[in-house]
């Protein structure tokens, strides 16, 4: 998820480095970026839930640390955390360095009763893992409601955000990551479970479902500063 956030943040920042053809969209993305720029750092507390069909996991408390431009860390209070993989190869630093995106205005739509503008970001570099990113921007509040990213290696994933108290900083109360999962099957030699056969019912349940990770924030501490050591290891 860490990497998802990076992608998201990157996408937002890309706006300032990319040649934007549609002037409206360029302005809009720039505004969104400016709004987010108010935040130099934050520490947020919240709950994380991993909802993957083939994983039974509890809801866990997490702490999220962020520092400009792209330092990000998610820490679980205790226990083991499961985050969707994929973002690793989508290293935005390289994308930023390439500085070569095409932004296309793609009209308007309504998500959860909010009118949004659609901006499509196309990397011009063929080596980039990202094929296409689509941002849905709430023009009134200058926040991103949804982002869909298609990658070569890790499929497509959606990030949806809901805002509340911290909308003025462009920080969401709730973030939902949705991603495609593959079929899961472990060889019995690994699980050592020779007795329990997978039933067809089980199999049906596990299939055709998207994985989701939900992050619900309770509180943010914004621009108060903290030690960088948290990002290490």
């Amino acid at each position: 998820m860490k990497n998802y956030l990076r992608v998201l943040i990157t996408l937002i920042f890309i706006g300032s480095f990319t040649q934007i053809k549609a002037q409206d969209i360029t302005t809009l993305v720039q505004k969104v970026k400016n709004k987010l720029d108010q935040v130099n750092d934050y520490v947020a507390e919240g709950k994380m839930k991993t909802d993957v069909a083939f994983i039974k996991a509890p809801v866990g408390k997490v702490k999220v640390y962020f520092k400009k431009p792209d330092k990000f860390k998610l820490k679980r209070d205790a226990g083991i955390s499961l985050l969707p993989k994929g973002g690793v190869t989508v290293n935005m630093r390289s994308l930023v360095a390439v500085n070569d995106y095409t932004v296309i205005a793609a009209g308007e739509t309504i998500i959860n009763g909010i009118k949004v503008k659609i901006a499509k970001l196309l990397p011009n570099n063929d080596n980039s893992d990202i094929v296409l990113s689509t941002l849905y921007i709430d023009e009134t509040n200058l926040v991103i409601i949804k982002a869909t990213t298609t990658t070569k290696e890790n499929g497509t994933y959606d990030i949806e955000m809901q805002y509340g108290k911290y909308i003025n900083y462009g920080l969401p109360d709730k973030v939902v990551f949705a991603f495609n999962t593959k079929d899961y099957k472990m060889p019995k030699g690994v699980t050592m479970e020779f007795d329990n056969d997978v039933t067809n019912e089980d199999r049906a349940k596990m299939k055709n479902k998207k994985g989701r990770v939900e992050l619900a924030y309770n509180s943010y501490i914004i621009n108060k500063g903290f030690d960088d050591s948290i990002f290490k290891n």
Partner: peptide, 19 residues
């Protein structure tokens, strides 16, 4: 000690440490 993450035939299970 920590949470238990077990891989089963059909799915994986994560059980909280206190449980």
């Amino acid at each position: 000690t920590d949470d238990m993450f077990l891989v089963k035939n059909a799915y994986a299970v994560q059980i909280e440490r206190a449980d």
